[in-house]
Simulated assay, not measured.
Amino acid sequence: MTQLVVRLGEMFTAFGAKAAYGDPIEVDGKRIVPVALLWYGFGAGSDEGEDAAGGGGGGGATIPVGAYVTVGNTVRFQPNVVALCAVAIPLTMVAGRALSRVVKALKK
């Protein structure tokens, strides 16, 4: 089981940049490279005792944040506004709530 976790870790480390940046696409004379934010995690467990317990787990997420667009010699980043808002709104709410609790605790 331990070897499996090590091998999975090595595999995901090797393909990290390829997962964050997609393959370039040519559209109407523009070169587009999609960009994503991604994270992943795995877990494992084992008990070599008589009952032979096991374990496992894994997960990940990908958010398309935008694309690099090349026209001639000019490169610019075009954000995916919908995806950024979908991530920013809950993040802002959680950060605001945490900040209010910190301020409240410091006042005491």
Score class of each variant (00 low, 15 high):
Met1Ala: 15
Met1Thr: 12
Met1Glu: 15
Gln3Ile: 08
Val5Gly: 05
Val6Met: 08
Val6Asn: 11
Leu8Gln: 12
Leu8Ile: 14
Leu8Asn: 08
Leu8Glu: 15
Gly9Ala: 11
Gly9Ser: 08
Met11Asp: 09
Met11Tyr: 14
Phe12Glu: 14
Thr13Leu: 12
Ala14Tyr: 07
Phe15His: 13
Gly16Ile: 08
Gly16Leu: 12
Gly16Asn: 12
Ala17Asp: 15
Ala17Thr: 14
Ala17Tyr: 06
Tyr21Leu: 13
Tyr21Trp: 03
Gly22Arg: 00
Asp23Ile: 10
Ile25Arg: 13
Glu26Cys: 06
Val27Ser: 05
Asp28His: 09
Gly29Val: 03
Lys30Gln: 14
Lys30Tyr: 00
Lys30Phe: 00
Arg31Ile: 12
Arg31His: 00
Arg31Asp: 02
Ile32Met: 04
Val33Lys: 05
Val35Cys: 10
Ala36Lys: 09
Leu37Pro: 06
Leu37His: 02
Leu37Arg: 08
Leu38Gly: 15
Leu38Asn: 15
Tyr40Thr: 12
Tyr40Phe: 11
Tyr40Val: 11
Tyr40Ser: 13
Phe42Gly: 09
Phe42Met: 15
Gly43Pro: 03
Gly43Ser: 14
Gly45Arg: 01
Ser46Thr: 10
Gly49Pro: 02
Gly49Leu: 06
Gly49Gln: 04
Asp51Phe: 11
Ala52Gly: 07
Ala52Val: 05
Ala52Ile: 08
Ala52Lys: 15
Ala53Pro: 00
Ala53Thr: 09
Gly55Val: 05
Gly55Ala: 10
Gly55Cys: 03
Gly55Glu: 02
Gly56His: 02
Gly56Cys: 04
Gly56Gln: 02
Gly58Lys: 01
Gly59Tyr: 02
Gly59Trp: 00
Gly60Trp: 00
Ala61Trp: 03
Ile63Asn: 05
Val65Lys: 01
Val65Gly: 04
Gly66Met: 01
Gly66Asp: 03
Ala67Val: 03
Tyr68Asn: 10
Tyr68Thr: 02
Tyr68Asp: 04
Tyr68Cys: 04
Val69Gly: 04
Thr70Ile: 11
Thr70Phe: 00
Gly72Pro: 01
Gly72Thr: 04
Asn73Tyr: 07
Thr74Met: 02
Val75Glu: 06
Arg76Gly: 01
Gln78Glu: 15
Gln78Val: 15
Pro79Met: 10
Pro79Phe: 01
Asn80Glu: 06
Val81Gly: 07
Val82Ile: 11
Ala83Asn: 06
Cys85His: 12
Ala86Gln: 09
Ala86Thr: 01
Val87Asn: 09
Ala88Arg: 09
Ala88Phe: 02
Ile89Val: 13
Pro90Asn: 05
Thr92Trp: 07
Met93Thr: 08
Ala95Arg: 03
Gly96Pro: 03
Arg97Ile: 09
Arg97Gly: 13
Ala98Lys: 12
Ala98Asn: 11
Ala98Trp: 14
Ala98Glu: 11
Ala98Asp: 10
Ser100His: 11
Ser100Val: 07
Ser100Lys: 12
Arg101Leu: 12
Arg101Glu: 14
Lys104Trp: 10
Ala105Asp: 14
Ala105Lys: 10
Leu106Ile: 10
Leu106His: 06
Lys107Asn: 07
Lys107Asp: 07
Lys108His: 13
Lys108Pro: 01
Lys108Ile: 13
